[in-house]
């Protein structure tokens, strides 16, 4: 009997900890994805401002050169752009919103920044594109700082909460 109890207790602690880690990880995930996203934007800027490569090609190059954890999004956009002749670039950017929110744990304000790039990309000359990129870089560093603060505050909190709530349940049950 005590063996079963021990086994049950361990199971409870593991599961609540996992839930805690899951929620905690969302915060660190957002931060690291924002950093990867910035890298991808930097590659895209180089492709456009220095390489003057047309967008479908530039986006594919970002996919190849960037960190695949995030850069696959740019491949999706490029494919959408090539397939959907009737729409504009913004629609293609909009098509990946679900991925950004669910797989990359980005928040609404991050997604809004991402979309704002989709509104201006390719629509003007290189000088103007560079200005737009600089604006996006400023914004994204603000978001990264914010994500860092949230991560520091919440990541540990959720992880501890997970373990502690497991222990609490155990105390009540036993």
């Amino acid at each position: 009997m005590p063996l079963v109890k021990l086994f049950g207790s361990i199971l409870i602690i593991i599961s609540t900890s996992l839930i805690g880690f899951y929620y905690g990880d969302k915060y660190s995930d957002r931060l690291s994805n924002l950093i990867y996203l910035e890298q991808c934007f930097k590659i895209l800027e180089t492709e456009i401002v220095y390489g003057a490569n047309p967008l479908p090609e530039a986006l594919t190059n970002v996919y190849k050169k960037g960190n695949k954890k995030v850069s696959f999004v740019f491949k999706e956009i490029s494919d959408h752009l090539k397939a959907n002749k009737n729409g504009d670039l913004f629609q293609s950017f909009h098509s990946v919103v679900g991925i950004l929110r669910n797989s990359l744990n980005l928040k609404d304000e991050d997604i809004e920044l991402f979309l704002s790039l989709g509104r201006v990309l390719g629509s003007s000359d290189r000088k103007d594109q560079e200005k737009n990129f600089n604006f996006v870089f400023k914004q994204i560093s603000v978001l990264q700082r914010e994500a860092k603060i949230e991560k520091d505050k919440n990541e540990k909190l959720y992880k501890n909460l997970g373990i502690l709530s497991g222990i609490t349940i155990l105390i009540i049950l036993l």
Partner: peptide, 8 residues
């Protein structure tokens, strides 16, 4: 090709 800058 969605890229005005490429044809500046």
């Amino acid at each position: 090709n969605y890229s005005v800058y490429a044809f500046e």
